[in-house]
Design a protein around this nucleic acid. Structure first.
Lengths: 333, 333
DNA sequence: GTGAAAGCGCTAACAA
DNA sequence: TTGTTAGCGCTTTCAC
């Protein structure tokens, strides 16, 4: 790691390191002539400041962390783009950290931020996260945190979320309008905000239509897609099986397609389906998938904006709620 | 950023900072009793070493970079998991950097590594990358680099690739065996190794079967999915349209489905399709998608392993070629 | 077995 | 306008 340092530039130009440092940061106390000489040499030698020295000295890293369950999900990959679109502009690096839906991993990741590695954290919690203590612990160290999409009620940090309950209510109502009489709900672990809120919306719609939500129509799916598939097939094999499904997360839709295929059930004739999904190819599935689509990019950008505010010592709104868009395609009709 | 530092521990225990440091690193010069006291206090105060100080002092960051075009692609998301499975174990952090298929972005990212920010780089180049100069420039600074999947011939670094030409040849042969007489090839920019190699395999298969590859049957797709769709539709609207398609990257498959839908062409009756893809849901698409699947996780893990070797100052194989798996489903038949 | 001190590269008071 | 100096938190000689 033979580096070009400020000291090297100083020696070369017979100037002091502080003069170089100031020139590089375009300080007004340095003459234009000197600045030019310094900048020219720096460019020629491909000088690049050592980020660790700057961070150590300045006690800030200009890094922020994006802590998410996984990356193989359209919502998160779009949200990442939204986040980086604002952080980049502000001169911050974004470090993507994956929890793989594991509470322990998430705790370990946040614990590793107790030392100034990042100046702020954007997080969407894992499906197995049981409490917000680890996030509060980080905040107690003075690290600004913003939650997005999958939030936790017991964390006093700004949150960017979708109107999950209303969206799920609309989605369920759509299936009811199309004649469904028994609708199942596929969620993730019930302690997850998005899962709970979407479930609440689903139940509200049922009640509004004088149906009683039944526990056996409500599935909590986990990380194992094989097991999830089995559970869905079991659900659809009952004699009085559901004729409609509201799926709360993207990765469950393909499983419903597969289960129906294997059980020779037709979508939408036998089972109608609508799914929360940012999948670009929803319209290309056969039959095309009706979706509730969150504005993923915007949510990421908004969350990053709030974090920037927080890091600048300013106050930020504690809750931003954005609307999801319901797109009716073939699977629900 | 009120931090627990070594100095704080030293003050608390009335020991010197160097003793604390040694105790924390389990040095043999420190008594067991002292070690225990130090470790106990460190745990109690939630001490976490400042990574910037360590990196500055030790002139190594224990960070590696994963530089890839995008994350919304099954191959890359799986490869990331493969990479982190080995880096994590070795105590390295992985920083994911997205080039968005942009050469300039890729250059900027690598340039930012000329200062010790990372100890090594894993890279799969963007579709618009024109030369390996920026990578060689980084290597000249002494930063170890390993390329995977999308490699560059003019970079003297270890590479982990799939047997692209052979796989494409087999895929093309499969379509020929199923009666295709005019097969199109959808690739990315021709300067991309995977695109060029897969194209070569496709052409070889055609020639072996006494067909002459035709330029107008070979499409170079870019970053814009809308334009790609248009190009595919134009291809399929010809009177003497192709009756088979070999698609070189995952994101092109949905476009072919959509184009066929819009043009009322049936897959596989009118157009047979096989695609390089690590998509988990390939089997659930309608019709199910025949695929050439690369061992993405393993490739990531292997590449990371080579990088670890390089960073340890050891020599590493210059080329590792792994086999892709052809899975025949409905779309090709 | 423990401690003092130097220095990684950079920035910012303060001096000149 | 430029230079001197101290110090960010840590590791590592070298001395005791």
């Amino acid at each position: 790691m033979r580096q070009v340092t400020i000291k090297a530039l100083a020696r070369e130009l017979r100037l002091s390191v502080s003069t170089i440092s100031k020139a590089l940061r375009d300080s007004h106390e340095i003459s234009d002539a000197t600045k030019r000489r310094v900048l020219e040499l720096a460019a020629r030698l491909n000088y690049s400041p050592n980020p660790y020295a700057s961070s150590l000295r300045g006690r800030k890293s200009r890094n922020i962390a994006i802590v998410i369950p996984e990356v193989a999900d359209s919502f998160f990959s779009l949200a990442i783009n939204g986040i980086t679109s604002v952080t980049k502009e502000k001169g911050y690096h974004s470090i993507i950290c994956l929890t793989h839906e594991d509470y322990k991993d998430e705790q370990d990741i946040l614990k590793a931020f107790h030392n100034g590695r990042v100046d702020g954290v954007l997080i969407s919690v894992s499906g197995t996260t049981e409490s917000g203590a680890h996030i509060r612990g980080l905040m107690d160290q003075g690290v600004p945190v913003v939650l997005f999409d999958r939030v936790l009620p017991d964390v006093p940090a700004p949150k960017v979320v979708t109107d999950d309950a209303a969206s799920a209510r609309n989605a369920t109502q759509l299936l009811l309008d199309h004649g469904c009489r028994r609708i199942a709900f596929l969620g993730l672990s019930p302690q997850l905000s998005i899962s709970a809120d979407r479930l609440a919306g689903y139940e509200a719609a049922l009640r509004e239509n004088h149906y009683q939500p039944k526990a056996k129509d409500i599935l909590s799916c986990g990380a194992g897609q094989q097991q999830n598939l089995l559970a869905i097939k079991k659900l659809l094999r009952q004699k009085d099986r559901p004729d409609g499904i509201v799926a709360a997360v993207e990765k469950l839709a393909p499983l419903v397609y597969q289960a129906c295929n294997e059980l020779s059930l037709r979508i939408p004739e036998d089972v109608k389906l609508i799914c929360f999904s940012s999948l670009e190819i929803a319209g290309i599935l056969q039959p095309s998938l009706s979706t509730v689509t969150q504005p993923a990019f915007e949510m990421g950008a908004k969350a990053a904006g709030l974090l920037m505010k927080l890091m600048a010592g300013k106050r930020a709104e504690m809750e931003v709620v954005v609307s999801a868009e319901l797109t009716e395609r073939v699977s629900s009709g």
